[in-house]
């Protein structure tokens, strides 16, 4: 399977997951966005050495994931490219901060190790919650939510079309790659000298196709506004859950048990 098909599969899989019907899927996307932002803000506000405080925050993604029926391992697999930078930054800490702050039995643990663990944990927690948002809301729902908070229609159209055109673009790419491979049997990949014309051609073809598509959308009555018709309604429970979550997060952050 080549990279193009892999990319298409990932997009398909994510859209499919967002179509689910768990309790979390039924919460309004705006509320979920708010919950996520609050969680990330609170998580990153923990002090550099506050490992014990931060540890309690693990409970939130654990509970949310149970309700959302999303698997942790899939989340980790999808986000394997995101963590390395955080881990590299964290790994430097033990080398520069060697002051012993804690003894476990007779083994001294330095401040650097604690701050490394805190950083990695923060990274993981933020990613878990962001992924939860991704996995439980579709792009159309998010765009409608963005319109509700008065983000310009121009911008939501741009986001929606960009997302739709990725598939179109990848389709053009695989057609062109296949045509190239048929013309150059036995050759691995695309010859370096042909990259410019290949990609340039790809851009021109995709732009033409996108314009034709958009024109046909306009001819069928699209006026820059997404139609709300047919999308699921959200219950008032969304707001209640959001407030409850907010209270719990603040409680965990500022009240020491």
């Amino acid at each position: 399977m080549n990279k193009t098909e892999q990319a298409r599969l990932i997009i398909g899989r994510l859209s499919e997951q967002a179509e689910g019907n768990s309790i979390v899927h039924r919460i309004s996307p705006l509320c979920k966005l708010f919950i996520t932002i609050v969680f990330i803000g609170v998580t990153t506000s923990y002090g550099k050495y506050d490992l014990s405080g931060l540890f309690v925050m693990i409970l939130f993604p654990v509970i949310w994931y149970q309700f959302a029926e999303v698997s942790f391992s899939e989340c980790l697999y999808r986000l394997r490219y995101v963590m390395p930078l955080v881990v590299i930054m964290g790994l430097a800490n033990p080398f520069f901060d060697k002051e012993i702050v804690l003894y476990v039995g007779r083994v001294g643990i330095s401040g650097g190790v604690i701050s490394m663990l805190v950083l990695i944990l923060k990274g993981l927690l933020c990613l878990f919650m962001s992924y939860l948002l991704v996995a439980t809301s579709s792009i159309e729902e998010m765009c409608i939510a963005m319109r509700r908070i008065h983000i310009p229609a121009f911008f939501t159209t741009l986001i929606l079309l960009t997302f739709r055109f990725v598939t179109l673009f990848l389709e053009e790419l695989s057609v062109m790659t296949e045509a190239y491979q048929l013309r150059a049997p036995g050759q691995k990949g695309i010859q370096f000298g042909a990259w410019g014309s290949f990609l340039g051609q790809l851009i021109l073809r995709s732009v033409d196709r996108a314009q034709a598509l958009y024109e046909s959308m306009v001819l069928r009555g699209y006026s820059g506004e997404i139609s709300y018709y047919g999308y699921k309604k959200y219950s008032k429970w969304s707001v209640l859950i959001t407030v409850l979550n907010l209270c719990l997060v603040v409680l965990v952050r500022y009240v020491r048990f």
Binding site: L158, L161, T162, R164, F165, L168, V207, A210, L213, E215
Partner: peptide
Amino acid sequence: KIPTMAVMSSL
């Protein structure tokens, strides 16, 4: 403009 922008973003 919009389709060109969108297709370039998707690229």
